[in-house]
Simulated scan of single mutants.
Amino acid sequence: MEGEIKEQQSLTATLEDVEVLYSLALGRTADAAAITEFAGHDLVFLLSVFFEGPEFRDRVLSPLAEQRLPDTGFYAWDVPDAVRRWAQANLPLTPEAAQRLGSLDYWPAFYLELFKDPEFQKATSLGPARPFGTEAWLGLNYLVDNAALFRRQAMIETIGSDWVEGWALDRGATDHALRLELWLDGRFVSAGIADLFRRDLQDRFGAPAGWAIAWRPVIVCAPALEAWKSAMPRQGDG
């Protein structure tokens, strides 16, 4: 297991701890003033502040209650290695949970493992009821149970008079190109394979085979163009 598991006791949050907490709980970086403000406080206290605050509710709990992934900030990416190692080494966890967290890069699975751990619940008073509540907790479990579906992502980026361009990939199998169909208002428009190299997607998602994929279906019904353009940008399941 990566990272040495610390003995669980009262821990004072360092500047690095606060930076990681922003990534873990809010999916974003912290400004310098916030890091300075929170550093030096008890780490368990800060866990409650971050996870029970309005920003976590708006950015994470609201989408989960609607059974959809948070789509802002770091949540559009996998859980960073640095966050996983920090959680293993610093959070009050059972050894089994700490071990499993080291291999979980899907945010919903990471959160589920963290908040269901009895040691974490005991030390922080956080769990399914707080901060999640029934609907968000059920949504979290739904996203984990259907991870293969939700790890497929796509976005339409540009639209022309007779073409649509974007990308699609399966984050659980980035070495496989997806076969796609384009539908509009229940009507089939076009089909294709997302097999064009995109370096920006490779850098973002870390495709293990060294490449990512793009999608360019080329037949678009002219009357549908305005409807497509009004809906951009669009991101969802592939």
Rank of each mutant, 00 (worst) to 15 (best):
22 Y>F: 12
11 L>H: 08
11 L>I: 11
6 K>R: 09
80 P>V: 13
43 L>V: 08
26 L>P: 01
12 T>I: 12
32 A>I: 05
51 F>A: 02
73 G>S: 00
27 G>I: 07
55 E>K: 07
66 E>S: 11
55 E>A: 10
78 D>W: 12
10 S>Q: 12
70 P>I: 05
22 Y>Q: 00
79 V>W: 09
16 E>W: 12
43 L>W: 00
29 T>R: 13
28 R>K: 09
76 A>D: 05
31 D>C: 05
74 F>W: 10
75 Y>C: 11
43 L>N: 08
76 A>V: 15
7 E>V: 10
28 R>C: 07
42 D>P: 00
39 A>K: 06
80 P>F: 13
24 L>M: 12
6 K>V: 12
39 A>C: 03
71 D>V: 04
52 E>D: 15
26 L>C: 06
21 L>K: 01
56 F>P: 03
73 G>W: 02
7 E>W: 11
23 S>P: 00
33 A>W: 07
71 D>I: 02
23 S>N: 02
24 L>W: 03
76 A>L: 15
36 T>D: 13
41 H>M: 08
57 R>D: 08
47 L>G: 05
8 Q>A: 15
26 L>I: 06
11 L>F: 10
55 E>R: 13
77 W>C: 07
36 T>R: 06
78 D>K: 14
12 T>Y: 05
53 G>M: 01
78 D>R: 14
45 F>L: 09
57 R>H: 10
49 V>Q: 10
60 V>T: 04
75 Y>L: 15
27 G>R: 00
7 E>C: 00
66 E>F: 05
71 D>S: 12
39 A>S: 14
9 Q>W: 12
70 P>Y: 02
42 D>V: 02
64 L>R: 05
50 F>K: 00
6 K>N: 01
45 F>W: 07
73 G>F: 03
54 P>F: 12
12 T>C: 14
38 F>D: 03
36 T>M: 04
34 A>N: 08
33 A>H: 14
59 R>M: 01
26 L>V: 11
9 Q>V: 13
67 Q>T: 06
73 G>M: 01
78 D>H: 15
26 L>R: 02
83 V>E: 00
59 R>D: 05
66 E>R: 14
58 D>G: 11
48 S>A: 06
25 A>S: 12
72 T>I: 14
82 A>Q: 11
52 E>G: 13
16 E>K: 06
24 L>P: 05
16 E>I: 12
6 K>M: 05
14 T>V: 03
50 F>N: 00
79 V>G: 06
63 P>S: 09
15 L>D: 10
35 I>H: 04
12 T>V: 14
13 A>R: 10
41 H>Q: 14
51 F>W: 03
41 H>N: 09
57 R>E: 09
77 W>V: 01
14 T>S: 14
47 L>P: 03
66 E>T: 08
57 R>C: 01
53 G>Q: 02
61 L>F: 09
37 E>P: 01
42 D>N: 11
63 P>M: 09
10 S>L: 08
80 P>K: 07
25 A>K: 03
7 E>R: 07
20 V>Q: 07
67 Q>V: 05
34 A>C: 10
11 L>Q: 03
